[in-house]
Nucleic acid binder design. Structure first.
Lengths: 112, 112
DNA sequence: TGCAAATATGAATAGATGTTCATATAATAT
DNA sequence: ATATTATATGAACATCTATTCATATTTGCA
């Protein structure tokens, strides 16, 4: 890892982006669901703004705002179809960060 | 991954903790240095507050404040020796989060 | 053209957060 | 005891951020 000020700032942006409850809910919403019907580990989940808003219980406006940030931060990508816009996770890094953070949190629970 | 509100909030706290330039500098400061003298991948780096402050160019007070948060968030641990307190990374999760975030940032650079 | 559905946007605001400054605490040595 | 070194702490402040509200934009359809 070659670290300089620029990289530090980019990493800050990336982690700050992930460090928000609403955005995490959106990301989990787009993560592979644990339903047993799909056995494909690389199954792509696509959801439109309104569906996400309904599922996580937030306003359309808030979800739209946050999706913009998540898109700018390369966490999600968008695909337009008619009036709807389908969002999905962009790459594996996002899943990995969520996975490791999840493990870290679980481990912390044992020591409380 | 079993996700509920509590887990989401804990993940938020963890990622928010990592998402700050000063704290990232502290963590990198405590990460294995790339000097070729140590070939042990699990080499533990310990540094006291003042050394960290000097190395990253921040005040002692700021570093102390941030170390407290990093400790509360299980990112670092502390060992007292005389008047000095030596800090080090607590577990592998921190390193992994930094590594993946670093990769994500590097990948993003290609598309600018 | 006009209407409805889906999403985006901008301003406003309350609350959170990083940093500084001054000071307190703790341990060591003279 | 006193001084010194190392670290922690609390208050204050300026900046940033998440959320809401109202409104704009875009697309599809009657």
């Amino acid at each position: 890892m070659y670290i300089n000020e620029h990289v530090i700032n980019k990493m800050q942006d990336t982690l700050k982006l992930a460090g928000d409850a609403t955005r995490l809910k959106i990301l989990f919403c787009l993560l592979d669901e644990l339903d047993t019907s799909s056995s494909d580990p690389h199954h792509l989940i696509e959801k439109c703004v309104n569906d996400i808003a309904l599922q996580i219980g937030c306003s359309q406006s808030l979800v739209s705002h946050q999706l913009k940030d998540l898109k700018d931060g390369d966490f999600v990508k968008a695909r337009k179809e008619g009036t709807k816009i389908y969002y999905s996770l962009k790459d594996e890094h996002v899943k990995q960060i969520m996975q490791i953070t999840y493990e870290h949190v679980l481990e912390g629970e044992h020591h409380d």
